[in-house]
């Protein structure tokens, strides 16, 4: 079954919000479950400044499913207890989506992420930018991320990053 565009938009919005909620809840298993279990599933976060200069370097460069698993391990095991934590709130808005083959869509959405460090309690913008996603449509019409490129308009981050944006 393939989704009609209006149904796809609704399913995509559900996926975008599910991912934002997983990140804001710091539930890394739920974050991981939004990605397909394919070897080339990927999450890459880089500044638009690098991208526009043809530079591929990122803040996070998880270019295969094993790296996504390791991202979860970084946060839940390796880094646990070593940093001052902060809350995030993601606001995500779909701006464009196109089918590229029978079961894959290309989608672009805007995001802004607020953060509130536990120690200061002062909220500020952590980052803003766009997600460029490839989205897989499952047999029953469910959607998962195949790849996400998080392009940060925020050239200089106001803080070190623990969680994916």
């Amino acid at each position: 079954m393939t989704l009609a565009p209006e149904n796809f938009n609704r399913a995509l919005d559900d996926l975008l919000v599910a991912d934002a909620d997983a990140l804001d809840s710091k539930d890394m298993q739920r974050w991981l479950s939004n990605y397909v279990e394919e070897d080339d599933a990927s999450y890459i976060c880089l500044s638009r400044e690098n991208e526009e200069q043809g530079l591929a370097l990122g803040f996070m460069y998880d270019d295969c499913h094993a790296r996504l698993l390791d991202r979860v391990t970084y946060i839940t095991k390796i880094w646990a207890g070593t940093f001052q934590d902060y809350r995030t709130r993601h606001f995500v808005q779909r701006v464009a989506a196109d089918r590229i083959d029978d079961n894959t869509w290309k989608a672009r959405s805007n995001f802004s992420v607020f953060m509130t460090p536990e120690d200061s309690g002062v909220s500020e913008v952590l980052a803003t930018g766009q997600y460029e996603d490839l989205v897989r449509e499952g047999a029953d019409g469910d959607l998962k991320l195949l790849s996400r490129r998080t392009l940060l308009d925020t050239t200089v981050l106001p803080r070190y990053l623990v969680y994916p944006i």
Binding site: F59, R67, R159, Y160, L161
Partner: peptide, 15 residues
């Protein structure tokens, strides 16, 4: 991209 910077495996905690 993954080891020594402000979100690096080793050095995130430096920050």
């Amino acid at each position: 991209s993954n080891l020594l910077g402000p979100s690096g495996l080793i050095s995130m905690e430096d920050a």
